[in-house]
Design a protein around this nucleic acid. Sequence first.
RNA 1: GGAGAGGUGGCCGAGUGGUCGAAGGCGCAGCACUGGAAAUGCUGUAUAGGGGCAACUCUAUCGAGGGUUCGAAUCCCUCCCUCUCCGCCA
Length: 468
Amino acid sequence: MLDPRLVRQNPDHVVAQLTRRGLAVDVDALHQRARQVQTLAERRTRLQAEGKRISRQVGQQFRLLMTEQDKHPVSFEEQPESPTDQEPQGNVESRRLPGDVDQKMEDIRALAEALEEKGRTIKTKVAALEEEEKALQAELRQELLRLPNLPSPRCPDGRSEVDNVELRRWGEPRSVPAALEHWQLAETLGLFESERSARIARSRFVTLLGPGARLERALIQFMLDLHVSRGYMEVLPPVLVNTASLTGSGQLPKFAEESFRCAEDDLWLSPTAEVPLTGLHRDEILSATDLPRRYVAYSPCFRREAGSYGRDTRGLIRLHQFNKVELYWFCHPDASEAAHEQLTADAEAVLQALELPYRVVELCTADLGFSACRTYDLEVWLSGAGAYREISSCSNCSDFQARRSSIRMKEGKHNRLLHTLNGSGLAVGRTMAALLEWYQQPDGSVAIPQALQRYMGCDVITPPSDPK
RNA sequence: GGAGAGGUGGCCGAGUGGUCGAAGGCGCAGCACUGGAAAUGCUGUAUAGGGGCAACUCUAUCGAGGGUUCGAAUCCCUCCCUCUCCGCCA
C-alpha cells in the first residue's frame, strides 16, 4: 500500500510515478478523500476531547455530593439507595438540615444533570461523525489497496515487456541437434503423467512418477540445502492462507481471480510462499539489530492461471499446482538495494551449481509486478524450445508489503516500516524442464549434473528397458 | 466436535464503573557511585493518528467487534485466539 500521507501531501508525485507504470489513476479524487477523512477526524477528536472533559466534571460532582452526604447522612433518606447504610447513623436532630445545605446539594445535582445532558448531545454528534469518517476511511483504504507500488527511480521506463533490459548472461546456450522438449523427453522416460492427472484433478495438473518424482524431490532438497548454507533460515509454512495474509502481500483485493479459495473458511491456497512469509511477521516490530532476516521456504504453489488457456499447455511450465523454493528478506530500508543484488545472486547460485545457462533481465516499469518497485527476472535456457524462459523473479517490494502487513523495525527510539524482498530460488518444475532439455543425450537418456547426483542417487536417467 | 479455564504494556502481574494509558516487579536506556565491574540509588522507558519550530498537547488503543452509561480494562452480547480434559484423526 502507498503511504496515505504521501497521497495527501504529494499527489503529483504519486501520479507521475504511476504514469511510469502506464497507469492513469484519478489521484485527485483520492487526494480529496484523504483530506476529507482528515478534516472529519479533526472535528471528531475535538468533540471527543470535550466529552471527556464533561465526563470528568460529572465525576467531580458526584464526589462532591458524596462528601456532602457524609457530612449530612440523613438528608438523603429520600434517595432509594442503601437505606440500611444510613440507619445506624441517623438521628432525629440531623433530619432538620439547614436550608442552605439542602440547596447546595440540589445545585450539585442540577449541575450534574445538566452536564450529563450535554454529554448525551456530544455522544450522538460523535457517533454521527464517526460513522461518516469510518465509511470514508474504508473507501480510501479500499482504493489505496488497489494501487500498485511506485517504481524505483532506478527502474527503467518502458511501455511493455520489450523494454525490459538484459543485464547479463551466464553460460553459453548451445543448440542441440534434434533437441526434444522436456515433455517429450519425459514421455519416453516415464517421468510424469499429464492426462491421468486431469482425471485426478483437472487439466494443468501433473503427477510425477519414478525418477521424475525423485528428481523433483532432489531439486527441492538441493535448493534448500544450498540456500541454508548461504545463511537462510529454512521455513515450511502453511499453504492455506487467510485473506489478511493475501492482502498483506498484495495478492488481494485486486487479484482474487488468480487464487483458489476455500470460501467456507476464509482460506485460500497460497499462490506463492511469499504470502505466508510476509505473514510470518505481520503486525510485528522487529529489532533493527537482527535484520536482515532471510528465509527460504519450499512450498507448493497454486494458481488459477486465468486467461492463459492456450499457453504452455504441455509439460511443467504452467500448472495450477507447482513447487517452488522461495527466498525472502526482511531488511532495513537503507539496505534493500544491496539486499536485492544479494538475493538475486543467491537465486543465480542455483543455476550456476546446476550449470544451466541463463540471463538476468531487469523488468521495465510497465512489466513490474504489483508489489514490486524493482525486479530482476532470471531466464533459464530451454534447449528444446530454443529460448530463454523465466525461472525466477527477484523483487524489491520496498515498504509496500510492510505497510499492508504492518511490519516494522525498532531503530533507536523510533519504529519504521522495514523493506521486504522476495525471489524464487527457484521454480522447481521449470528447473526440471530446463535440466531435462539441457542434459538430454542422443540415446534418449538425461545426465544428472554433478551437484545433484548425491540427491538423485544416480548420474543419469535412462529410458525403461521394457517400455510398457 | 464436547466440557472447562484464560486473554491487561518488551515480559510477569495488580486493577473498586469516575483525571486508569493503567499499581508493583522484571527487563531495557541514561545518570550517580567505582580504578573498572557487580550490587545499589535516581530518572526515563507502548503504539498509531492529529496539532505545534519546539517544550508540549489532543484523540484512540487493556484479544476483536458491538451494546449499556454523561463516563468501561472493569457490566452485557457476539466472535477470535491460547491452555487443560474428552472424542476423532495423519
